[in-house]
Design a protein around this nucleic acid. Structure first.
Length: 486
RNA sequence: GCCCCUAUAGUCUAGCGGCCUAGGACGCCACCCUUUCAAGGUGGAGACCGCGGGUUCGAAUCCCGCUGGGGGCACCA
């Protein structure tokens, strides 16, 4: 049996990381087994549709490198892969169940449903539909109360007994049928609910394993009965633990970034995000945690999926991201940085653009291990590009020196710079070390003052590498400016 | 309110009856490297394995209860 798995998002907004983690696990399992990864769009809620979100979701998958074998637009016997294009299929299925006496039309109004629910909760009973329309008399009554309404189709659940589902990570889970109500299959607008569409499509698309978030576990018994009603074989169920925010509730927008697109905008690398997400609810052994996508494909098995929810820890993501940045080739990193540096809103000042690629290539080796996110680049590299630096005069005076001492040091540094023709790291370091000795100041004091003069900041890459990259002209000019600021 | 899942350090996790004086990682602290900041190296603090009962010669590991956490209970997915 070849594995067929699917990612089935509904286009109601940006792709959420929890959601994308499901996509990732499905993709990994498909690639690990040589199976098929399918993307199916579940757009059965007309009210919540967000235009453009299908493309946004597909974009997120592409960005993360999760390619699909079948999906929207694919011409295969299993398609189409957008549920709104499959309405007839669901209607036929619902009709079939009605004919077979396994489902019925319900005319109850939302107001009544609401009232029933409230009354039940007050009576400490499980909430749920009271099955009035399941009986002829009840249906007739409901119809009289609500003559113009279009009915929904409800599934007849057994009134007693146990329903057991087998979850791959949790084992057998048993539910009391008496507590499960007759859920809606087809809405009054003719669209199917998730339950109907999902079961029908998973069968028709020959899905072998349903890997989805744990929030679906309570629906599993309904699905099981639906499969049985249709006479369909049920796929293997694998429920993934939820991803939680720092407050331990389901990760959402109010926890800050929750959309994959936001992580892209924050300067995270797709492979870092994939690596991080893979470890939320899955692990290989006691020590491995840096995994390329190929590694993950190679090692991923559902047997190692955890059952307990995981808190999304952005500090660890930052660490992964730094790791992946440090692992990039210089040229690749430089290319990756350009869009960030040239961003009209958050990038370098306009007069520094377009970025001189050759110059950037010389800068990258100095900054790569200092970057945690690509978005930090404009701020972190700005002093390489700015025409004039803005000094905090206090910073120009190193610890242990007074303003006069700093002035003397900088003047000497300027003279040294001016007199240096071989503008190389080795030469610069040699002459400045000699200068510190001559001035009888600590190297740290001299270097610190020069660093601030040349970069405008106290934290920067190693001084002589920085001087070399900046070039003699810039350095000399900046030392002069710094002296006037002092 | 009803149902289900779950429980190892702040966080992600290893552990599937003796190898555990509980291992790895992030974060935190210290030291080393060092011209600053990083990166890197070394070391450290941090978990009475949620609590209470069992089972067993022996339990983080199996069972039960409690408690905590989470999820679900829509003509949303």
């Amino acid at each position: 049996m070849t594995v067929r798995v699917r990612y089935a998002p509904s286009p109601t907004g940006d792709p959420h990381v929890g959601n994308i983690r499901s996509a990732l696990f499905n993709w990994l399992y498909a690639r690990h087994t040589g199976g098929t990864f399918i993307v199916r769009i579940e757009d059965t809620d007309q009210a919540r549709l967000v235009p453009g979100s299908v493309e946004t979701i597909l974009d997120a998958l592409r960005w993360l490198g999760l390619d699909w074998d079948e999906g929207p637009g694919s011409q295969t016997p299993h398609g189409p892969y957008v549920q709104s294009e499959r309405l007839d299929i669901y209607k036929e299925h619902a009709a079939r169940l009605i004919i077979e006496g396994k489902a019925y039309e319900c005319y109850c109004t939302p107001a009544r449903l609401d009232a029933v629910r409230k009354a039940r909760q007050q009576a400490r009973q499980p909430t749920g539909y009271d099955r009035r329309c399941r009986e002829l008399e009840g249906a007739r009554q409901a119809r009289e109360e609500n003559p113009s309404a279009k009915p929904v189709v409800r599934f007849k659940m057994p009134e007693e007994g146990n329903i057991t589902v087998n979850d791959f990570v949790r084992g057998e889970v048993t539910f009391d049928a008496a507590l499960l109500d007759d859920f809606v299959l087809l809405k009054s607008d003719g669209y199917p609910t998730y339950h109907l569409a999902n079961v029908v499509d998973d069968h028709l698309m020959e899905i072998t394993h349903v890997m989805r978030a744990e929030e679906w576990l309570p629906s599993a018994p309904r699905h099981r009965l639906l499969y049985e009603a249709f006479g369909y074989e049920m796929p293997r169920l694998i429920h993934l633990p939820l991803i939680l925010g720092p407050d331990r509730s389901k990760l959402s927008k109010r926890h800050g970034a929750a959309s994959v697109l936001e992580f892209r905008e924050m300067g995270y690398l797709p492979d870092a995000l994939v690596n991080f997400l893979a470890l939320l609810g899955w692990s290989l052994d006691e020590s491995s945690e840096v995994f390329s996508k190929d590694d993950l494909v190679k090692h991923f098995t559902p047997e190692r999926i955890l059952a307990n929810p995981a808190v999304f820890n952005i500090e660890k993501l930052d660490w992964f991201n730094g790791l992946y940045i440090r692992d990039m080739d210089d040229a690749v990193l430089a290319d990756a940085l350009v869009p960030w540096l040239e961003d009209p809103e958050h990038g370098l000042p306009a007069n520094a653009l377009p970025v001189n690629r050759e110059y950037l290539a010389s800068i990258v080796p100095l900054e790569r291990e200092r970057l945690k996110r690509l978005s930090e680049a404009p701020e972190m590299l700005s002093f390489f590009f700015e025409e004039r630096l803005h000094y905090d005069p206090a910073l120009l005076v190193p610890k242990g020196l007074d303003a006069d001492g700093a002035r003397d040091a900088l003047e000497a540094a300027l003279a040294t710079a001016d007199g240096t023709d071989d503008w190389s790291v080795a030469e610069l370091e040699a002459s400045y070390r000699a200068l510190a000795e001559r001035l009888e100041v600590k190297t740290g004091q001299l270097f610190g003052a020069v660093r601030v003069a040349v970069t405008g900041r106290t934290a920067a890459p190693p001084l002589f590498d920085t001087l070399a990259v900046l070039g003699k002209e810039r350095c000399v000019a900046r030392l002069r400016t710094a002296l006037t600021a002092l």
